[in-house]
Design a protein around this nucleic acid. Structure first.
Length: 373
DNA sequence: TCTGGGGTCCTAGGACCC
DNA sequence: TCTGGGGTCCTAGGACCC
């Protein structure tokens, strides 16, 4: 028998802000959506009463809730608090899986002897997070990961739902299908069109329910990962000149390249994303014969993709660069080029070091290079 | 004063190979 | 004078998640 506790933080970003500034307690707090074209990333439960929710455009949130306190995102701070939450989870099990910045799964299988029943331990974990960090969390405890997540969501805010072994289907039966992670607006509509309203209805279709719920395996659906690292940005004013686009692409490439080297990855595929001001979005990618982590090479590919695919005359509101098909060391290095690549690797390591020490803007590599020997 | 940024997963067509 | 079947890789787009 497996036991999984899914922990989901309540209104995480807004709650961190409230925990740090007591004057915000009980107030309508909205994080994000502050700058001209942003969206809300988190809203306190007080603000949600007015219909504000995450992913909502800032101007809409302001209309619904003009008296709310709007705060800018402080991602580094939320990452720090996320680390604190996960440190607590790890006290209770060696096996903790991070789902996102504010969600994790604690494998409580086999901890009964040491800690007591999984239900008791789950209560302790939620209480501990509240006491030590002043943050509210919700939990779902089940023999199946997906059921545990659904239970945690149903428990919000600040609740714990326990689904005893054998009662998984009973718990799921009355829920709407969009309670299942992976069933969004589109799929939900399609299910309704076919007369599938609840998870109970869905369970009559073995292939569909296996695909979305994976109840047969003890652990629920577990995803393999084909990692990717990307960066994108929406520009303040839509761009029309290729030169300006290339400048933006340079900063994105520096970000992506830096992360590749930091995590010791080489990318085999580079993707350029362009969103025009009418919001139509295209992606164009190229698979390399030799994987790379070097800004110069990534930029070369990105620039070529831009030149080849850009609809000139149309204004561009977003540009993105992403590196995928990542592989670790041991990539096939062409012999002739080895010395040259080594030099570049040394150069970039030095650049990364300086950026680390003096900040991201300390060093930029000139957009026109000469070969380094 | 329209609609962020970080991702994962899935599908589908075409190229290419045997 | 009309052309199988299977597999893999590449590319593009889109659904979905937080």
């Amino acid at each position: 028998m497996h036991w999984y506790l899914h922990v989901d933080m309540d209104a995480f970003f807004a709650s961190v802000e409230q925990a740090l500034n007591l004057a915000l307690k009980g107030k309508l707090v909205v994080v994000g959506g502050n700058s001209g074209r942003g969206v809300v990333t988190s809203a306190s439960y007080e603000a949600r009463k007015y219909g504000v929710h995450s992913a909502m455009p800032g101007f809409q949130a302001r209309k619904l809730c003009p008296h709310a306190i709007f705060l800018p995102n402080r991602h580094a701070l939320y990452r720090e608090y996320s680390g604190k939450v996960f440190a607590i989870l790890k006290r209770y099990s060696p096996e903790v899986q991070a789902i996102s910045i504010d969600e994790g799964i604690v494998n409580l299988t086999g901890t009964e002897r040491l800690l007591g029943s999984p239900l008791k331990t789950s209560h302790e974990i939620i209480t501990c997070i509240q006491k030590e960090l002043g943050l509210s969390a919700s939990g779902g405890l089940s023999t199946n990961r997906v059921v545990a997540k659904i239970a945690a969501t149903s428990a919000k805010p600040h609740g714990l739902i326990y689904v005893p072994a054998g009662s998984e289907e009973n718990f799921l039966y009355p829920l709407p299908t969009n309670a299942i992670p992976g069933v969004g607006a589109k799929t939900h509509r399609e299910f309704l069109r076919r007369g599938i309203q609840t998870v109970g209805d869905l369970l009559r279709y073995p292939e569909l329910s296996e695909h979305y719920l994976g109840l047969k395996g003890p652990q629920g659906k577990e995803r393999s990962r084909d990692h990717s690292i990307g960066s994108e940005t929406t520009v303040d004013r839509p761009l029309k000149k290729t030169d300006n686009m290339e400048r933006v692409i340079w900063t994105l490439v520096e970000e992506v390249g830096g992360r590749l080297r930091e995590e010791s990855y080489f990318a085999r595929c580079i993707t350029l994303k362009i969103r025009y001001s009418d919001f139509t979005t295209i992606t164009r990618s190229l698979t390399l014969s030799v994987p790379t982590c070097f800004d110069r090479e990534i930029f070369g590919v990105a620039r070529a993709l831009l030149i080849k695919n850009l609809h000139r005359g149309r204004a561009v509101r977003l540009l993105g660069i992403s590196a995928s098909h990542l592989q670790g060391s041991g990539w096939q290095e062409p012999l002739l080029d080895r010395q040259n690549r080594r030099s570049w690797e040394r150069l970039y390591r030095g650049v990364d070091h300086l950026r680390d020490k003096y900040g991201e803007d300390a060093v930029h590599i000139a957009a026109t290079h000469t070969e380094i020997r």
